[in-house]
C-alpha cells in the first residue's frame, strides 16, 4: 500500500476508522467509520457527550489503542499497521499527552518529571525551557504533592511538550480544575501551540472552550456529527465558564 499523498500542511489523516470492543457476546461500536485530517499547528477542540467515541479516537491516534478498521496515518507512518514497539516509538518521538488527572510521577520533582521525558527524546528542549513555557520556573524543584492542581497540570503540559512533539493530545485537561485555574492551563496550551507549532487536539465536555480553537469537531455515536471553523479564535483569557 502506498501512502496517501498528504498536502504540505496535513500531518494527520484518518479514513474509515472503526473500533469495536467485545465484552463477552456483546459488541460495542465505539467508532464507526471516522474520516479526519489535521494540519500542522492546527488547534482543534473535540466536543461530544460521554460515550460518543471521542476518547477512543484520541487514544487510537495517540497510539494508546488499536483500531478495528480503517487507516490512520501520521505523516508517512501508517499507525494502524505499527506493532507494539512501533507504537511506543511513535508516542516517544511524536506525541505529547495531557490527561484530566495529570498522572505525574509523585516521587519526582517538577523538573525531574519533565526530565523523565527529555532523557528518552531525540531533540528535546531542556526541562527549564519547557517549564518556563508554562510559567513554572520558580516551582521546578517541588514535588507534585507540593503543587496545586493547576500547577500539576502545567507540569504535565511541560512534560508533554518538552520533547517538541508533532501532536499534543489533551483529554479533558481542565476537567479537574476550577474555571480560573483551567483558563491558565488553556493559556499555557495555546501558547505552546503557537510557539512549538504542535498540532493540538483538546477533548472536552466544556463547550466554552471551543472558542479558542481553529476548528471544532463534534462527536456523536462513534462518528463525527459536525465540524466547523472559527472565523476568529478567542484568546483563552477571553472565555469563561
Amino acid at each position: 500500500m502506498t501512502a496517501p499523498r498528504p498536502s504540505a500542511q496535513t500531518v494527520f489523516r484518518v479514513t474509515g476508522l472503526g473500533k469495536v470492543y467485545r465484552t463477552g457476546d456483546v459488541e460495542v461500536h465505539a467508532l464507526r467509520g471516522v474520516d479526519f485530517t489535521a494540519s500542522r499547528g492546527e488547534f482543534i477542540v473535540i466536543l461530544g457527550p460521554s460515550g460518543s467515541g471521542k476518547s477512543t479516537f484520541l487514544n487510537i491516534i495517540g497510539g494508546l489503542d488499536r483500531a478495528s478498521a480503517g487507516e490512520a496515518w501520521f505523516e508517512d507512518h501508517e499507525l494502524t499497521r505499527l506493532d507494539e514497539a512501533g507504537l511506543t516509538r511513535y508516542r516517544r518521538d511524536h506525541v505529547g499527552f495531557i490527561f484530566q488527572f495529570y498522572n505525574l510521577v509523585p516521587s519526582l520533582t517538577a523538573r525531574e518529571n519533565v526530565q523523565l521525558v527529555t532523557e528518552i527524546s531525540r531533540q528535546p528542549m531542556t526541562p527549564q525551557e519547557a517549564l518556563a513555557l508554562v510559567d513554572l520556573e520558580d516551582r521546578m524543584d517541588h514535588f507534585p504533592a507540593q503543587l496545586s492542581g493547576g500547577e500539576q497540570q502545567r507540569v504535565a503540559i511541560a512534560r508533554a511538550i518538552a520533547k517538541r512533539p508533532d501532536m499534543l493530545l489533551c483529554d479533558e485537561p481542565t476537567g479537574a480544575l476550577d474555571s480560573k485555574t483551567g483558563i491558565r492551563v488553556l493559556e499555557a496550551l495555546t501558547r505552546v501551540n503557537a510557539e512549538i507549532g504542535a498540532t493540538t487536539l483538546v477533548i472536552t465536555h466544556n463547550a466554552a472552550i471551543q472558542e479558542i480553537a481553529d476548528r471544532v469537531v463534534r462527536f456523536a455515536n462513534g462518528a463525527i456529527a459536525s465540524e466547523h471553523r472559527n472565523a476568529r479564535r478567542k484568546p483563552a483569557s477571553a472565555i469563561s465558564w
Binding site: 495517540g62 508516542r91 516517544r92 498522572n103 510521577v105
Partner: peptide
C-alpha cells in the same frame, strides 16, 4: 500500576 501506565504513555517501552 498507575505510574507504570503513565510512563508507557510517555513513550517508555515495556522493557523500560
Amino acid at each position: 500500576a498507575r505510574e507504570m501506565a503513565s510512563l508507557r504513555v510517555l513513550g517508555f517501552t515495556r522493557g523500560e
